[in-house]
């Protein structure tokens, strides 16, 4: 995903649902359309539920990647206010 360097990064390791998505959503709200948010998390369920919820809210999920034994990195582009 060249050209999609994140505009903002959040680390929500240690958080569980629903706070994982609450934090991600609040970060997203504070960004401009077209900007990309990078989310670092270690709660497995959230690696599936956050991308789904982001899509439901009209955002574009660019990447979901397991980066090591415990962590995932998501890239989400803000398409909708």
């Amino acid at each position: 995903m060249a050209g999609d360097a994140p505009d903002r990064q959040i680390n929500i390791k240690g958080l569980v649902c629903p706070y994982t998505f609450v934090k991600a959503k609040l970060a997203m709200e504070a960004m401009e359309i077209g900007q990309v948010l990078e989310i670092l998390l270690d709660y497995e369920e959230a690696s599936r539920s956050i991308p789904k919820s982001m899509e439901d809210h009209g955002q574009k999920v660019l990447k979901v990647e397991k980066v090591n034994d415990t962590d995932w990195v998501l890239l989400v582009r803000k398409d909708k206010d």
Binding site: P18, Y19, F21, V22, L26, E29, A30
Partner: peptide, 23 residues
Amino acid sequence: DFTDDQLMRYSRHILLPEVGGKG
């Protein structure tokens, strides 16, 4: 800026697209 307590207290509101942090 929400405190951690507020974030937890209002999470079910913040999750709603019609409310969110701004609402």
